[in-house]
Write a protein that binds this DNA or RNA. Structure first.
Lengths: 139, 139
DNA sequence: ATTATTGCAAAGACTTTGCAACTCC
DNA sequence: GGAGTTGCAAAGTCTTTGCAATAAT
């Protein structure tokens, strides 16, 4: 996180996309904020680019998701949240708030992966494991 | 699954709710259909109860979720799907369709539970583990 | 120059709300 | 009888769309 402008540009260019101020701003906003909703991204961006259209932000977020630069997070309310993709990680959520935190634990993913390799699921080929823990933040 | 009318009634009554034809129909529809969206539930119900209001179905689904009779499933599109709660299970989803299947595997949940008991997550107290596998259905 | 991207404003999909009328216990 | 539920229709929230104007390579 805290990517430099160069990092941001590289990430966008590597995905085969044109670099625009709007795209840089969106990627930066998703990176700097903790799992923001589209709404939040719009607000952040407007601080420096007052006339960015809402529709544009949605389009950019969609583009980024389909190119694999960022990830969509499904929520209980149905409002989408976004996440820059770094490494495999799981999400911690609190039923009483909309807080989402990342938790990194390669060992856990490996454990599950190994288990699934052993005990195959009939009629299904696993591509990705998504884990969400719900509970309480104690801090 | 395939609950009898008596089962349905019991489930609703045990949750401290009044038994109404609408509630019976909603619970039955969620039970009989494979992870239906609200929309689907409405259509199913209207076959026998033509004048059930959409709003009523949403209210009932909400009530059931908050009483723990059914569970809300978050999806990529943001459209909520519903599930009668039986035992711990995980969901299999295919990125190319909106199909959702249950997969039961107590061993897997125990494995993860044990792992998390061992390696506690700082600042977080886990209450529930949600696992979703994305991939391809091969049947 | 060419093609992708943006801004805008309107429409769309899904869900929630308020309240009078009605039902279940 | 009285609190809990329903139907209805309107409003709300979040997201998508179409297209002319604009900007990136």
């Amino acid at each position: 996180m805290e990517m430099t402008v160069e990092d941001l540009k590289k990430r966008i260019k590597d995905a085969g996309l044109r670099i625009t101020p709007q795209r840089l701003a969106v990627l930066d906003a998703v990176d700097r904020n903790n799992h923001p909703a589209a709404d939040r991204v719009v607000k952040e961006i407007r601080k420096n680019h007052p006339n960015v259209a809402t529709g544009t932000v949605y389009k950019i977020l969609d583009t980024f998701v389909s190119r694999g630069i960022i990830r969509k997070i499904e929520t209980r309310s149905g409002v989408m949240r976004y996440d820059t993709i770094l490494q495999k990680h799981l999400h911690l959520t609190d039923g009483n708030s909309d807080r989402i935190e990342d938790y990194f634990d390669d060992e856990l993913f490996e454990l599950i992966q190994k288990y699934l390799q052993h005990k195959k699921i009939p009629g299904f080929q696993t591509a990705d494991i998504k884990i969400k823990l719900t509970g309480k933040f104690t801090d």
